[in-house]
Amino acid sequence: MENLTPEDLFSPSKARQQRLQAQDWAQIDSWLSYKYAGRTPPTFERNEETLKVMRELSTANERADEERVIQERLEREALKELDERTVHPTDASLLSSLTTSLTPTGHTALQSLTSTALTLSVPTPTPETLAHALIASTALSQSLRTQIAHVHTLQQYLETQHSLLRTQLAELTSNPAFSTPPSLQRQTNEQVRQTKHLKGRIRECEDKILALSSGSTSAQRGGKGSTVDVGIASAESILQMLEQQKVVEELREKVERLEKEVSAFAGLPADREAARREVSRLEVDLDGVRRKRDGLFEGLVGR
């Protein structure tokens, strides 16, 4: 109920869903406290997916407990029946005669056959049945031994990788080289502002060039009496146009240079912390590529 928002107070369906989830979590907490018998259960994230998995785990555990109780009851009843079972006198006499007639070697062989049959759970201890059961048990044991060795190797590999990742994480969090400069956002904003300003200046200069070009064309179409004035105006206009064109070229080069600098930060998020994490991730990738390059170079030098 503590997760209810003000909007949920006016939605009966959401309130009912929150109440059911709270009841489920209460049952899960009670089950975990019972299973851990006074110890503190490990912490975990409480969300809908975790709740679903914990419900399935609790149900499966309860079902397994019920099956184990039934199996134990059946075993106790079977042992009780075996204890209460009476031996027929004829069978007892036959067993006594057989055991007394056997030599010590035969008695040992009979005991070995009996123990082998019981260990392998073979109801009819014929040589063929015992051989097949023994082969199957040996194959199963070897397969389990191989799987245990594989799991042990995988566990060692995972422990090594886990230690390596923890070392890298400690280096990333403690090394100042992987921290984002505090002035990154300010520099980016300043470069964007300069780019917009220079683009506006370029448009103004281009408009002036077009105006000068149109004025020069109209002056050339005037009468012959104003030929000298037109020539002087045209020369001055050409000089101004050349100077402005030079300024425009310089501004265009500056804009292109600023756009290249800004494009390096184009893929970064707008949020400062997210940008810092992205820069840290890219620096880690760069460091990995450098180590790989150094390893390849050392391998070539070793050859």
Rank of each mutant, 00 (worst) to 15 (best):
L118R: 14
S121D: 08
T129S: 10
T105L: 08
D65P: 00
H107E: 11
L110N: 05
P125S: 10
T167W: 03
L172G: 02
L120N: 00
A78C: 04
L154V: 00
L79M: 08
P125V: 08
L94A: 12
L113A: 05
L140D: 12
I148N: 10
A92G: 03
V122D: 01
I70K: 15
Y157M: 09
R76C: 01
H162E: 14
T105E: 11
Q161F: 01
P127F: 10
H150Q: 13
Q168T: 04
H150L: 12
T114R: 03
Q155W: 07
R63F: 08
S101H: 12
S137G: 00
Q156M: 06
E171G: 01
G106V: 08
T160H: 07
K80M: 08
Q156A: 11
L57Y: 06
A109N: 07
A133W: 01
T167H: 13
S115H: 08
E67W: 08
H88A: 10
L113H: 02
K80I: 09
V151S: 15
D65Q: 15
L57K: 07
L94H: 05
Q156S: 12
T160N: 04
V53A: 01
V87G: 02
I135R: 13
A133E: 00
T103S: 14
S115V: 02
T114G: 00
T126A: 14
T129F: 03
S97C: 06
T86G: 12
M54S: 05
A136I: 02
E81H: 14
S96R: 14
T108F: 09
Y157Q: 13
Y157V: 09
L120G: 00
L144H: 09
E81L: 12
P123I: 07
L95Q: 09
L79Y: 04
A92D: 09
R73Q: 12
L134C: 03
H150E: 13
E56Q: 14
E171V: 04
L82R: 11
E67F: 06
N61T: 15
T146C: 03
A170S: 07
T146S: 09
T160V: 03
T160S: 05
L110P: 00
M54W: 02
E128S: 09
P123M: 10
Q111C: 05
V122E: 05
D83C: 04
E159M: 11
P104H: 13
L172A: 12
D83T: 14
T124G: 00
R145H: 14
T108I: 09
D83R: 15
S93C: 09
A117G: 01
Q161L: 08
R145M: 07
